[in-house]
């Protein structure tokens, strides 16, 4: 079962550094797991908390968010605001005994192709070892 489990991973990245890292990776022909679906937003700061919660209730086994490193945000402070919102969502999940470890937040810079593919692979393995997200397949969420 564990071996055949093919997790659905949503990778949300900002339109500047995050996707930049992915573009650099593609320019170098680097590989990342196919089950990772990339979703581009203008800035991680533009993500709402509901954007983080909904995939986790509706089918994703994990959600990873990458934006610019601190100080590098195209809009100055979007990544700092995103960090606050990620912390908020994780705290809500934790306080109710829901799995907050299916949500990751990691900075990836434009040139950091290796860091992007590593994150995609590492997060996929992390979710594989956790198994399917129980909320994703429940009818009563």
């Amino acid at each position: 079962m564990a071996e055949s489990f093919d997790p659905k991973i949503l990778y949300v990245m900002c339109g500047w550094c995050g996707t930049g890292g992915a573009e650099t990776a593609s320019a170098y022909g680097m590989y990342y797991p196919e089950n990772v679906r990339i979703f581009r937003v203008n800035c991680t700061g533009a993500l709402s908390t509901v954007h983080m919660l909904r995939p986790l209730l509706e089918g994703a086994d994990g959600l990873v968010i990458s934006g610019c490193h601190p100080g590098d945000c195209h809009y100055d402070d979007g990544n700092f605001m995103a960090r606050r919102k990620v912390a908020l969502v994780k705290t809500i999940l934790d306080s109710l005994g829901l799995d907050s470890d299916r949500l990751w937040f990691r900075y990836v810079a434009h040139g950091e192709a290796r860091r992007f593919v590593d994150t995609a692979a590492e997060f996929t393995d992390h979710i594989k070892s956790k198994g399917p997200n129980p909320l994703a397949t429940r009818s009563d969420t």
Binding site: A87, D118, A121, E122, D125
Partner: peptide, 29 residues
């Protein structure tokens, strides 16, 4: 709290990056 931030805060919520990942699904595996 959601209209402000500190630069140096909440590091527990940032996923640390352990250099090159060499797990099963690793890049050039």
């Amino acid at each position: 709290p959601l209209v402000t931030y500190e630069q140096d805060e909440l590091h527990d919520f940032e996923q640390p990056y352990v250099k090159t990942y060499s797990g099963k699904g690793a890049a050039d595996a």
